[in-house]
Simulated scan of single mutants.
Amino acid sequence: MKEMTAKEVENQLNEGKVFDIIDVRETDEVAEGKIPGAINIPLGLVEFRMHELDKSKEYLMVCRSGGRSGRASQFLEGQGFTIINMTGGMLAWEGKVE
C-alpha cells in the first residue's frame, strides 16, 4: 500500500497538486473539519459506494489516525483501485480545513 504523511500531502497541495481525497470518518467527525475538497464516504459504506469511484484515478484515503483509511485502502486496492493512505490521519493534519 502506498502511503504519505499528512505533512507530505499538505506540502504537495500547497505546491498545486490535486488529490481526489476520500475521508472515511463518520459524518459527525467530518463535521468538525475536513481537508478542503474531500469527499466523505464513511468506512462502513465504502463497499457500497465504490461504484461512485473511477478506477483510472488515484485516491487519497484519510481518517482520524490512519487506521480506518488503511483498511479502506487495502479493500479498494483489492478491487483494482489505485490508493494512497495518509498516515497519521487528521490528528497529524496541520493544513487548512473546511
Rank of each mutant, 00 (worst) to 15 (best):
T82S: 15
T82G: 03
G66M: 07
K34L: 04
I83V: 15
P36E: 06
F75K: 13
L76Y: 06
L76A: 07
N85S: 04
K34Q: 06
A38L: 12
S65L: 00
T82P: 05
I35D: 03
G67N: 12
E15C: 00
G67A: 06
G70W: 11
E29D: 14
V24I: 04
L13I: 09
S69I: 07
K17A: 10
A72H: 04
M61V: 07
L60Q: 05
E26V: 05
G16A: 10
R64H: 13
V18N: 09
F75P: 13
L13K: 02
D23S: 12
M86L: 05
C63G: 03
S69G: 04
T27F: 10
N85L: 09
L45S: 15
H51F: 10
S73I: 07
V9F: 01
E15V: 09
I21V: 15
N40L: 11
F81R: 08
G16F: 09
V30D: 01
Q12R: 15
A72Q: 09
L45R: 14
I35N: 02
V30F: 10
T27R: 13
C63H: 06
F19G: 07
A31T: 07
L60K: 02
N11M: 11
K57C: 05
R64I: 07
I22T: 14
I21M: 14
E58R: 13
